[in-house]
């Protein structure tokens, strides 16, 4: 992974890439804020930009979540709420605990202590698959395409409540063929939406890195989630695809899905997020609208401090 990023930095047309992104940003701005963005901004009006602030309608709310590795505290979040229907970005220098926090709330890691709830249901220490079934789906920093399944199969896997997934019904096709057909239709729509239809019957292993990112997002949507957690969706993706990914993320928000994303690229974050949470050394040091964060002294310090010691990268 660290290799990927290095490559990214070394690319000769880095500047061109930046420009392209800025273009995207302008384009988006030119279109004016979407309905979802307006709704999100309205919901968040009056929320003070300070760490741990309460939101009017939180979809996810975490309390005292602590994760220690040996003697090290990787995550120590006092209180954090995520407003429904927004794009909330988690930023912070490397090793700030964003990904670990992601893993904790999605059930992929067990915290030392703490509790959190989703849609009002306490989901602390719930098994990851149960959390996903409740409608909180995550993707991974390193894309996890199911290589030897076709693209269609990858997406179909996301459907919940499939009766054919029970061992007893599986051999009796007539019991689940109707459901399978309707799931297939839904999957085809998603593939169309993410422009993957031409790969429908190819093995996912033959896809490019960017296509895999899109596939992962399509697969997550197949679960019909209320909350999608994207772990560095733009990492290692070329600028053209970044643009389309950004578009997809915003469309999702406009459709009412809440999105939490971890991202390194500040430009990306500032252009699409409704709310930004900044991590440093495992704690939430600031949160607020992108404009608040830009001006926040703690954030600037954290980044500058981190820049100096950026030579050592953590690997997860």
């Amino acid at each position: 992974m660290s290799g990927d990023q290095e490559q990214h930095e070394l690319e000769p047309d880095l500047l061109a890439e930046r420009e392209e992104l800025i273009d995207v940003e302008r384009e988006l701005e030119a279109q004016g804020p979407s309905a979802g963005a307006v709704r999100a901004a309205e919901a968040l009006t009056g929320v003070a930009p300070e760490p741990g602030v309460a939101k009017p309608d939180p979809i996810l709310s975490a309390d005292g979540v602590v994760r220690e590795f040996g003697g090290l505290t990787a995550v120590d979040v006092d209180h954090l709420e995520v407003q429904r229907g927004t794009i909330t970005a988690l930023i912070g220098p490397n090793g700030a605990g964003k990904s670990t926090f992601f893993n904790l709330v999605s059930g992929f890691d067990t915290p030392t202590r703490g509790s959190w709830s989703f849609n009002g249901t306490d989901i602390s220490r719930m098994a990851a698959h149960k959390i996903a079934r409740l409608g909180m789906v995550r993707t991974f920093q390193l894309t996890k395409a199911l290589m030897r399944l076709t693209t269609l199969e990858n997406v179909m896997l996301g459907a919940t409540g499939q009766s054919g997934e029970s061992l007893w019904r599986a051999p009796l096709r007539f019991l689940w063929s109707d459901q399978e057909r309707s799931n297939q239709k839904r999957a085809d729509v998603l593939l169309e939406r993410f422009r993957l239809s031409h790969m429908r019957d190819e093995f996912a292993g033959t896809m490019s890195g960017g296509q895999r990112k899109l596939l992962e997002m399509a697969r997550a949507l197949m679960v019909e989630p209320d909350l999608v957690m994207l772990d560095e969706p733009m990492a290692g993706v070329n600028p053209a695809l970044t643009q389309s990914l950004l578009g997809h993320i915003q469309t999702l928000r406009d459709e009412g899905v809440t999105i939490i994303l971890v991202e390194h690229d500040m430009d990306v974050i500032m252009s699409i997020s409704d709310w930004v949470v900044c991590f440093a050394e495992g704690r939430v040091i600031a949160e607020g609208r992108p404009d608040d964060i830009r001006r926040d002294k703690a954030v600037i310090d954290a980044y500058l401090g981190a820049r100096r010691s950026l030579t050592q990268e953590d690997d997860k």
């Binding site: 992929f108 996903a132 789906v137 991974f140 996890k144 199911l146 030897r148 697969r219």
Partner: peptide
């Protein structure tokens, strides 16, 4: 087969 390919991905999809 998805478990064979990647357990974590299957888990993240509620399996």
């Amino acid at each position: 087969r998805s478990v064979r390919e990647d357990e974590q991905a299957a888990r993240s999809l509620g399996k």
